[in-house]
Nucleic acid binder design. Structure first.
Length: 326
DNA sequence: GGCTATGATTCGCG
DNA sequence: CGCGAATCATAGCC
């Protein structure tokens, strides 16, 4: 019945140890997915093997006991047959009773084995149980990308792969990370300000000089439209660089012509840097070009359409307590 | 032990 | 299908 099927599927019953491990591996692979983490799987397999061994030894024991008991009863009946007549029917009936009893015991064994397997599966296959924080290096790389693409923190499939490779995590983990990051950043920009500054400064070191000229040009050329500088509306137009959109690839592989494409993101970087240098932190007044507050206001990707519960418990994101280090 | 940070999952939406 | 939002469950810190 069903128990049998399940045990067979899990590689517990069925072929013995020789092919058993293969069956177990197949089961693990089938349920777990790809050959992602061999460590987990080998662990899982080991545990499964253990269960299988217990199951088989118990099963054997029961069978043996059943046989012994049957022969014992038979002997008893034979002895009794000397004193009273015993029909073959009666013997058959006795044997039947014994077998039924033992098979019900076997049933219980199977059931408990199934339970054990289920627990094992939930323990090992539920990824949430084995959550591990990414390495410091990995989060650093991810953060670098995130903050240097703050205007559009949606890495392309290629970029995700690249990041995944760099961080030695899977692409879906990268997606998860960015999903979490975006939402958590948006939820409380103030909390991430420090981090943003940190990474912005870090990337700025490498990127700023490459783009600074371009940005300055951009700004000096259009002093009348500060909003264009604020670049808040990343989600939309971005007109220019949308067409060239090549900001992905490696995040910082710019070949001459790409500079334009990267300007947008670099503006973010610079904004943070400027912020850090304490230039505009008092901009709360309203015309602060680069305050994240402003950024928030003009509907970027983090356009918080639901200000309801946010009401930043901390000070507003605008009040960046820049450590006035300069 | 409670708290926060964080990775993963789930669900609804377009 | 990718994303946002809510949620779960563990890690790590005090």
């Amino acid at each position: 019945m069903r128990l049998d099927n399940m045990l067979l599927a899990e590689g517990v019953s069925g072929p013995e140890k020789g092919g058993g491990s293969a069956a177990a591996a197949a089961a693990a692979a089938a349920s777990g997915g790809s050959s992602d983490n061999s460590i987990e799987h080998s662990d899982y397999r080991a545990k499964l093997t253990q269960i299988r061994q217990i199951y088989h030894t118990e099963l054997e024991k029961y069978e043996q006991a059943c046989n012994e008991f049957t022969t014992h009863v038979m002997n008893l009946l034979r002895e009794q047959s000397r004193t009273r007549p015993i029909s073959p029917k009666e013997i058959e009936r006795m044997v039947g009773i014994i077998h039924r009893k033992f098979s019900s015991i076997q049933m219980q064994l199977k059931q408990s084995t199934c339970e054990a397997v289920m627990i094992l599966r939930s323990r090992f296959l539920d990824a949430r149980r084995k959550r591990r924080n990414f390495s410091k290096q990995a989060t650093e790389i991810l953060n670098e990308y995130f903050y240097s693409h703050l205007s559009n923190p949606y890495p392309s499939e290629e970029a995700k792969e690249e990041l995944a490779k760099k961080c030695s995590i899977t692409v879906s983990q990268v997606s998860n990370w960015f999903g979490n990051k975006r939402i958590r950043y948006k939820k409380n920009i103030g909390k991430f300000q420090e981090e943003a500054n940190l990474y912005a400064a870090k990337t700025a070191v490498t990127a700023a000089h490459a783009v600074a000229a371009a940005v300055q040009n951009n700004q000096t050329n259009s002093p009348t439209t500060p909003n264009s500088g604020s670049s808040g509306s990343f989600n939309l137009p971005n007109s220019g660089d949308m067409f060239m959109n090549m900001q992905s690839l490696n995040g910082d592989s710019y070949q001459g012509s790409q500079v334009g494409a990267n300007v947008q993101s670099q503006v973010d970087t610079l904004r943070h840097v400027i912020n850090q240098t304490g230039g505009y932190n008092d901009g709360l007044g309203g015309n602060s070009l680069y305050s994240p507050h402003n950024l928030n206001a003009n509907g970027g990707w983090q356009d918080a359409t639901t200000p309801s519960s946010v009401t930043s418990p901390t000070e507003g994101p605008g009040s960046v307590h820049s450590d006035t280090s300069n």
